[in-house]
Design a binder for these strands. Structure first.
Lengths: 335, 335
DNA sequence: TTGTATGCGTTATCAT
DNA sequence: ATGATAACGCATACAA
């Protein structure tokens, strides 16, 4: 490992001068700077991140909290695209990405402790159980933090415009002539509550009432559950004409259940999803859904986090709302 | 930030003793160890990773190289599941995960330089362009490395059993009575070559000849290209009875093209994919395909890498072959 | 069993 | 413009 000291010897100057030259300090002569850099280059010098961090108390790294509770984890296009965007932009801004872990040696740390251990410059909570006290503790532990799709005091956040998205979907379905709308809710978290609120509210605005039996509690990414719900709904004396699924993947289970009942989408049953998963768009009939701009959400998370780091104590948290885009597919029939 | 020194003062002992006590050194009395740990706990002590690394030259971190060239990146179930497995097992083994980056301050490093900068204990190349000289340079730069689905001298590797998988698929299709098999190849890399070789070889074993017009160059994860290829194949004077798509996602494009031509799968055309993507299995007819055990591949990568780190210079690289599993779906018709 | 001293590689302060 | 020196927090060889 070639160090600054080795370069200094070769250059016949002091380590201090080498350090300054490499860092482009103004109080070092042009000639010396050139020489030091040339020698460093030919010796294959690479700085030592640990030494630098120890001295400067900065890591230029972001810690990333990704959910552990769900089996689906990274394997969801929405979250992977978001991670992709976050990573790309963070690196452009000069930050590395590490996953937040809880293990250290034999023992288990809290998230906050781990972040302190690694001295991350900032933390992004991309997806997590926001009810978890450990997650909440992390968000308030003092290190700059940006959350996605949930909001904590003092932290920036990036939110998908779920209310606007659902409103647009409901209005579109209404305009297509539907009056009997059923909804299958996702897991009981902030996103689900916002979407459900917007659903009820928009229906009311449009003069539609949603009977209790059209309002089902479900889960995200659960085709089986969605299939079951679909069977229940379509067995009602007065079945809905359109079902709002919690997401595109759940819709697939609903589609299958409908087909098993001898029903055709959209002839016998209209359906909408949420997310705009690329893979699902390959399937016919093309799903009508609300595309979420996951990449942009990731990008904005990185930018907001960089801002929080830069502004330090003077940082004023912002809420960034990212609009989606209605995909008018072929699963909502004109009535 | 509470340090070892602060604990020492509170305990009335030396920093060295505190360090030893915290690390469970045998040459510290039970009583002292207990007291030090109690005080450390109530003071909220958390070690400093940078200081530790600087001293010990170990980071307990793995660097992760993920492809940058393709747009698809993380957003492919196969790779996300692999990453999930890798991350989970690596953390169990006491390692953190960071992405390998190439930016440092204003300048751009090679992968090898970045790895040296961060002093990763090991490197996993999960997916990358293995033709890239920078990737090859990383693999031979001395830090323990494990690659996935490609093989470099001196590095351990985890390989999906593509040859075995294709052989099993071909045999299954043959047993279903098919004799006119067409193949759409993926991008020209090691995986594609292995699969194609196994395809040709197995066909030959079974006495089937593959005419040139049944053998098409394509790409992975390219529904449009697969659709185009399907149209070409099905327009032949003697079309194939079964098409081997490069992966499940490409199959979706083929399915759509076939439907557009008024052909039904599997009545008019049989098809097989590769990967066993969960989402695609939700679609009817259920795709016949070879499921790759991505999670296990990730887990094995972590374990092999930990082994390489532990054994140091004495490490003998191993090749770990992970078998897949044939999913007998509904897209291959019995002839 | 405990303490002292040193150094890991870097940056930053203060002299020169 | 350059250099000497200290310090970041920790682990360890060695002395007591």
């Amino acid at each position: 490992m070639v160090t600054i000291k080795a370069i200094a010897e070769r250059c016949g100057c002091s380590p201090a001068t080498v350090s300054k030259a490499l860092n482009g300090a103004p109080d070092v002569s042009r000639a010396m700077t050139r020489r030091v850099r040339a020698v460093a280059g030919e010796m294959g010098y690479v700085p030592n991140a640990a030494a630098r961090t120890l001295k400067t108390a900065r890591t230029y790294s972001f810690g990333l909290l990704f959910r552990e509770n769900a089996k689906i984890g990274l394997a969801h296009e929405f979250f992977s695209l978001m991670l992709d965007g976050f990573k790309r932009r963070a690196e452009e801004l000069g930050y590395d990405i590490s996953f937040i872990n809880r293990r250290l040696g034999g023992q288990e740390l809290t998230y906050a402790e781990y972040v302190q251990y690694r001295r991350f410059d900032g933390v992004a909570i991309i997806t997590a159980n926001y009810e978890d006290p450990l997650v909440r503790a992390l968000a308030v532990c003092g290190v700059p933090t940006v959350t996605v799709d949930d909001q904590f005091d003092g932290c920036g956040c990036v939110l998908s415009d779920n209310a606007g998205g659902v409103r647009e979907l409901v209005r579109y379905v209404y305009e297509m002539g539907h009056r009997r709308l059923a909804v299958l809710r996702g897991d009981n978290n902030r996103v689900s509550r916002v979407r459900w609120g917007a659903f009820r509210h928009t229906c009311q605005e449009l003069g539609m009432t949603v009977p209790d039996e059209y309002d089902l509690q479900g889960r995200f990414h659960d085709p089986e559950g969605a299939g079951e719900a679909t069977r229940r709904l379509m067995a009602l004396a007065t079945p809905p004409t359109c079902i709002f699924y919690p997401d595109d993947i759940s819709y697939l289970g609903g589609l299958r259940a409908a087909e098993d009942m001898g029903l055709c989408v959209p002839e016998d049953l209209s359906a909408v999803g949420y997310d705009g998963i690329g893979l699902v768009q390959q399937i016919r009939p093309r799903l009508t859904t609300m595309w979420q701009n996951a990449d942009k959400m990731g990008v904005e998370t990185a930018e907001e986090l960089a801002r929080a780091v830069k502004e330090g104590g003077g940082y004023t948290p912002r809420q960034i709302l990212i609009p989606g885009e209605l995909i008018k597919g072929e699963t909502v029939k004109k009535l």
